[in-house]
């Protein structure tokens, strides 16, 4: 009883704290200095058409590196918690395999979905999207295979190599910026090109592609660990 009362008191207090904020919040109608600086810089300095990408990859690039690290640690945690003991083979699944139509449809859609994911992260600096979205789309392509084929097994060696190599190359590109231009994750060591073409914005598409590969392989790993022993 006391516990329930406490919960109600906590929630009412939170409402009392946040209500003035909700009432008095001033919704701006122009960009503040920092944001307009970012917008101007990403157009004139970086030639990146998608300003969000410029913020994620370069201006806040160190944060993104940190977030990718958090993602990696969480994936490692999921794999560690749900790992199978060595030699433990689960019983043969008595589920019947998916129907012919589902299997054919999935194997037809799988390469197209992968292609779409690659398109999304290669064009991250021009259109909405980027490494994170492209990685998620790639992971959902693998999800399609996992759902349609109960005997599907990931090739873990390939998955781990893709993940660690893309992470290493991401940091290496950052270091290259540090060595050549004097600041970490500076993408201007490649030619900037003209605004709005595929080969523009220096190393931004390259960095975002590595982020995409890393996110895609990590999320596929999470899905595989969560699915567990189904063979």
């Amino acid at each position: 009883m006391i516990k329930r009362l406490l919960i109600i008191v906590v929630i009412i207090l939170l409402i009392v704290i946040f209500l003035p904020f909700m009432k008095n919040v001033i919704l701006k109608d122009s960009l503040n200095e920092l944001s307009s600086g970012y917008v101007e810089k990403s157009v004139s300095d970086l030639k990146t058409a998608n300003i969000v990408t410029a913020v994620v990859v370069t201006f806040r690039g160190l944060d993104t590196l940190g977030e990718v690290t958090v993602l990696f640690i969480a994936t490692a945690g999921v794999g560690l918690l749900l790992k199978r003991k060595k030699g433990e083979k689960s019983k043969k699944s008595d589920k019947r395999p998916a129907s012919e139509i589902l299997q054919t449809g999935a194997s037809f859609l799988f390469p197209l979905t992968i292609l779409f994911g690659v398109y999304i992260f290669l064009h991250g600096h021009l259109t909405p999207g980027g490494g994170f979205q492209g990685g998620v789309i790639i992971a959902s392509a693998f999800l399609l295979l996992l759902l349609s084929n109960i005997n599907f097994q990931f090739n873990h060696t390939v998955l781990h190599w893709v993940e660690s190599l893309s992470g290493a190359f991401y940091v290496l590109l950052g270091l290259l910026g540090l060595i050549l231009l004097g600041s970490f994750l500076n993408p201007k060591f490649l030619p900037l090109g003209t605004l709005g073409t595929l080969f523009s914005a220096g190393a931004v598409p390259l960095i975002y592609s590595f982020i995409g590969l890393k996110v895609g392989s990590e999320l596929s790993n999470i899905l595989d660990s969560m699915r567990g022993a189904e063979e």
């Binding site: 503040n32 944001s35 410029a54 913020v55 994620v56 806040r60 977030e67 993602l71």
Partner: peptide, 15 residues
């Protein structure tokens, strides 16, 4: 519109 909140939320969703 302001691009910074978009960039922050983008990564926060994945995390």
């Amino acid at each position: 519109v302001d691009p910074i909140p978009s960039a922050l939320v983008l990564t926060a969703i994945v995390i």
